[in-house]
Amino acid sequence: MSLKQSLSYITFLSLIFSTGCGSYSEFSSEATKDYSRAEMQKFAKYMVAGKQLYTTHCSNCHQESGQGLGKLYPPLAKSDFMMQNVNRTACLIKNGIKGEIIVNNITYNQEMPALEELTNLEVAEIATYIYNSWGNERGFVTVKEVETSLSNCQ
């Protein structure tokens, strides 16, 4: 084997190892820097499940990029409305919303349908995903938090 060939093998193998294999670097952020390995593992699970649920239930309107659409559907990425209040968000995911809301200084008024069939775990997974994607860094939204939020919806 020539030196050139061996080098290219090494590059190839190191590429395989660096892209995954046990590290959750793709999910880590400022918010997750103190998470233990076990917590990080759970967080990653929520993120993956959350993304799938988001794609099924939310991305039609809010888009895969979380940017929303024009002034019709509000963004979730860097949304002040959403970041202000996790309890309210959990309620919105489950129960939907009607009427005007103001997101990043723009008034939106499009009904969002309820998703009553979602379990508390699924709401937590979606919430964890949207609160930790597209530049949002809040960290875990746990099932416990969701339970508390949902029992206090207005």
Partner: peptide
Amino acid sequence: FTSCPTICPTMKKEML
């Protein structure tokens, strides 16, 4: 229809 929760938002994004 404007209150359509399913495929319309995607259609509008594409028509845009």
